[in-house]
């Protein structure tokens, strides 16, 4: 029988107050946290601050062209949101391939970000959407662009007493995708993933943003490839050059899931496929 110590706040202020104490840790869906809790914390288990009761943090809100997600929005809610399907297709695609039904029903966007894994599937889409994170604590609020949030695998700028309270971004340009390769077709962690957001105007590609997952200590953007593609017509030559460029921007390692050379090469393959409109293979 596994027993944790928990605190169950019902308002955000109460939660932030609690988080300001010693040896406490917030829990949202628990799908990452409870898996490694014992291994990481051993005998000195922190008290868990259960966020479920904070109703406003579960909401998806739209104001004009700006969308903001509460940190407790689940992968399933993202997957099934008609609004997001139009406004952030890459985020919806990522949410729908991650984990399993059971995991998606519990895992939250805030948890995926705070966990800080370079293979967290929602993170590359949020990079290309230029998402802003609102971090709150008893001392106040601050805003930070998502690409300034991560420091390394599992390491973020989030202070111990802070909570991600909102994730917001502008509705997408007209095109976007998320593609990944994984060790199996479901219940799998990505070996490599590519997300993009871009517009097509008179046959040329503009406003390109590309982000790569699981090929560096954090999710990264691919600025050189973005710059090269900008204003180009998408033909085979351009795509091959872009694929070559992006391979150089990836800094993968070999681990239990894959090998570095393969990951580097696949970044290019996935970019080409995404821009060609080839869907995720299942």
């Amino acid at each position: 029988m596994t027993k944790y110590k928990t605190i169950n706040p019902t308002t955000l202020d109460e939660a932030l107050e609690t988080l300001n104490g010693c040896n406490v840790m917030p829990i949202a869906g628990g799908t990452d946290l409870l898996v490694k809790f014992y291994e990481v914390y051993g005998k000195s288990l922190p008290k868990l601050v259960v966020l479920d009761g904070l109703i406003p943090l579960h909401e998806i809100k739209t104001e004009n062209d700006r969308i903001s997600l509460g940190p407790l929005v689940t992968f399933s809610e993202i997957e099934n949101s008609p609004e997001l399907r139009k406004a952030a297709p890459q985020l919806v695609q990522a949410a729908s391939v991650a984990g399993s039904v059971q995991i998606r029903n519990r895992a939250t966007i805030g948890g995926n970000i705070a966990n800080g894994s370079p293979s967290g599937d929602l993170i590359p889409p949020l990079y290309v959407l230029n998402a802003e994170l609102e971090l709150s604590s008893v001392n106040g609020r601050r805003s930070i662009p998502i690409d300034k949030f991560f420091k390394g695998p599992g390491i973020t700028v989030l202070e111990k007493n802070e909570l991600i309270t909102s994730i917001s971004f502008d509705k997408t340009f007209e095109n976007g995708f998320f593609l990944r390769l994984a060790t199996r077709k479901a219940l799998a962690i990505s070996k490599v993933s590519v997300a993009a957001n871009y517009s097509m105007q008179n046959g040329t590609i503009t406003n390109v943003r590309i982000a790569l997952g699981a090929v560096a200590p954090t999710v990264i953007r691919a600025p050189r490839t973005e710059e090269y593609l900008s204003g180009k017509e998408l033909n085979d030559n351009v795509l091959s050059t872009a694929a070559k460029l992006i391979k150089e921007e990836a800094k993968p390692i070999s681990d239990i899931r894959s090998i570095a050379d393969y990951r580097r090469e696949m970044v290019g393959v996935l970019l080409k496929r995404g821009l060609n409109g080839i869907p995720q293979s299942e």
């Binding site: 060790t183 199996r184 077709k185 479901a186 219940l187 299942e282």
Partner: peptide
């Protein structure tokens, strides 16, 4: 563990 020792799921 089952997240790293991969066996086929219903989709595989």
């Amino acid at each position: 563990e089952f997240s790293t020792y991969i066996i086929p799921t219903a989709q595989d």
